[in-house]
Amino acid sequence: YHCKTPDCKGWCFFEDDVNEFTCPVCFHVNCLLCKAIHEQMNC
């Protein structure tokens, strides 16, 4: 999964039971359910 922050090169592999990941490059939290960044909110 590629981080949705513009111009960020961060990415990860994820498993089905994970709903979000913190990008190791820009540190934004990406929602894997809706494929967006909406920190401090539920999907």
Rank of each mutant, 00 (worst) to 15 (best):
D16E: 13
C34V: 00
H28G: 10
W11Y: 12
K9C: 09
C34N: 03
E20H: 06
I37A: 09
E39N: 11
L33K: 15
K4L: 15
E39C: 07
G10R: 02
E15H: 06
F14L: 15
H38T: 02
T22E: 09
C31K: 02
H2E: 03
T5I: 03
H2M: 12
L32P: 04
F27D: 12
N42H: 15
K4G: 08
H2P: 14
P6K: 13
C26W: 00
C23Q: 03
P24I: 00
V29A: 05
K35W: 05
T5H: 09
G10N: 01
N19M: 11
A36P: 06
E15P: 09
L32Y: 06
D16G: 11
P6G: 04
Y1F: 06
T22I: 07
N42S: 13
L32S: 06
L33Q: 12
F27Q: 14
H38Q: 02
L33A: 12
D17V: 13
C43A: 05
C31M: 02
I37R: 09
L33V: 11
C34G: 04
C23S: 00
Q40G: 15
F27G: 15
T22H: 12
K9W: 10
Y1T: 07
H28K: 15
N30I: 01
L33T: 12
A36C: 09
D16T: 11
T5M: 13
F13S: 14
Y1S: 05
G10F: 05
H28I: 07
D7W: 04
D17P: 12
G10V: 01
F21G: 06
C8S: 02
L32E: 05
W11E: 15
M41D: 15
N42Y: 10
E39H: 09
A36N: 10
E20L: 09
K35C: 11
C12L: 05
C12N: 02
H2N: 15
E39T: 13
E39L: 10
A36W: 01
K35S: 12
H28R: 13
I37D: 10
F27R: 13
N42G: 15
H38K: 02
I37W: 05
H2D: 06
K4Y: 11
K4W: 11
Q40N: 13
F13C: 10
I37S: 08
W11G: 09
D16K: 15
C3R: 00
F21K: 06
D7S: 09
C26P: 00
V18A: 11
C43D: 09
K4H: 09
D16H: 12
Q40E: 15
K4V: 14
I37E: 08
C8H: 01
E20V: 05
E20T: 10
C23E: 01
D17A: 12
N30E: 00
C23A: 01
N19L: 11
T22W: 04
Q40R: 12
W11N: 14
P24M: 00
C34K: 03
H28W: 03
K4E: 05
H28P: 00
L33D: 09
L33R: 15
K35F: 09
K9M: 10
C31V: 02
H38W: 00
F21A: 14
K35H: 12
Y1I: 14
T22C: 09
L32D: 03
K9V: 13
H38N: 02
D17M: 07
G10A: 03
C26D: 03
C34L: 03
N19A: 12
G10D: 01
C3T: 00
F14Q: 06
F13E: 15
H38R: 02
N42K: 11
K35N: 13
P24L: 02
W11K: 13
D16F: 14
A36G: 14
F13V: 07
K35L: 06
P24S: 07
H2C: 10
F21Q: 08
I37H: 08
C43K: 05
E15T: 12
D17T: 11
F21R: 05
V18L: 10
C3W: 01
K4I: 08
P6I: 05
A36H: 15
T22S: 07
P24V: 01
K9T: 14
F27K: 15
Q40I: 03
T5K: 12
E15L: 04
E20M: 10
L33H: 11
G10M: 03
D17R: 11
H28V: 06
P6N: 08
